[in-house]
Simulated scan of single mutants.
Amino acid sequence: MEISDNLRLVEANIAAACKRAGRKREEVKLIAVSKTHPVEAIKEAIRCGIRSFGENKVQELKDKLEKLDESLDWHLIGHLQTNKVKYVVGKVSLIHSLESVRLAEALEKEAVKRGVIVDVLVEVNIAGEDTKFGVLPENVEDFIREVAKFEHIRVKGLMTVAPIAEESEENRKYFKNLNKIMVDLNSKNIHNVSMNVLSMGMTGDYETAIEEGATLVRVGTGIFGHRDYSI
């Protein structure tokens, strides 16, 4: 299938999930995850009306930014090392993967240097998997209170990568829990923190994520097809 056909199908699925959940379609933003896919594929998605793209690796993001002069909405969704923050701050609209105070310190330092505010999501390891990055659910409040002290960082919400599951229904409990964590934290009126973004759901489970409150869904394979990891 062509990218245009894939996008029509994804769009129909998002609309249907919103309808089932009694939500408006405009409450959910689709992030096209373009990692490992060539610039030509991104240009095709742009022609189909997509403006928001997600990359996992800083170097790949940097290369694509140099080749695409469009005023696109870029998201860094992968793990960010402290020595790479200079390539990201001021270049992306949202960093989805804040998960350590050390990274927050590096982001703050770079943001001060550039005179910008950095919008971030706190990555939550919602299922407590050893192989995943992220703050454990029971530590999220303390972590956010620490990050809230940085004047040039703005916590916009939470992100999670749910476990790989054969059925998307298996991940419903995790999406529901992440939504609950955000609601609970907002009720505590933490200084400098007002969250309304939930980045959760990928190609295999984004419809379930939308039903449980996702405001950003990260779809790669469902739009661009399977990746070639040899490049």
Rank of each mutant, 00 (worst) to 15 (best):
V116M: 10
F143E: 03
M1T: 13
L136H: 11
Q81W: 08
V118C: 14
L9A: 14
I95Y: 03
I223C: 07
L198W: 06
M182R: 12
M1E: 12
L94A: 12
Y174F: 15
R172M: 04
R51T: 12
V124D: 01
E70L: 13
R25G: 06
R102K: 15
I42H: 07
N192M: 02
N189M: 11
V161A: 11
P38K: 06
E40V: 07
G204A: 04
N125F: 02
E146R: 13
G90Y: 04
L107T: 01
H37P: 14
L107W: 01
G134H: 07
A12F: 01
L61Q: 09
V92I: 04
K180E: 14
R8W: 01
A111Q: 06
L76T: 00
G22W: 03
A41T: 05
T215N: 09
T208K: 09
L136Q: 14
N189V: 06
K35M: 07
E66R: 14
T36L: 11
S168V: 00
L185P: 01
I223V: 10
E129R: 03
H79Y: 05
R227T: 02
T203G: 10
I117K: 12
F133I: 00
R154E: 01
V118I: 06
V197T: 15
L216K: 08
E60L: 09
G134W: 02
I31K: 05
S52F: 00
V217T: 08
G22L: 00
L68R: 03
Y229S: 09
V124S: 03
E55S: 10
I210N: 02
V135S: 12
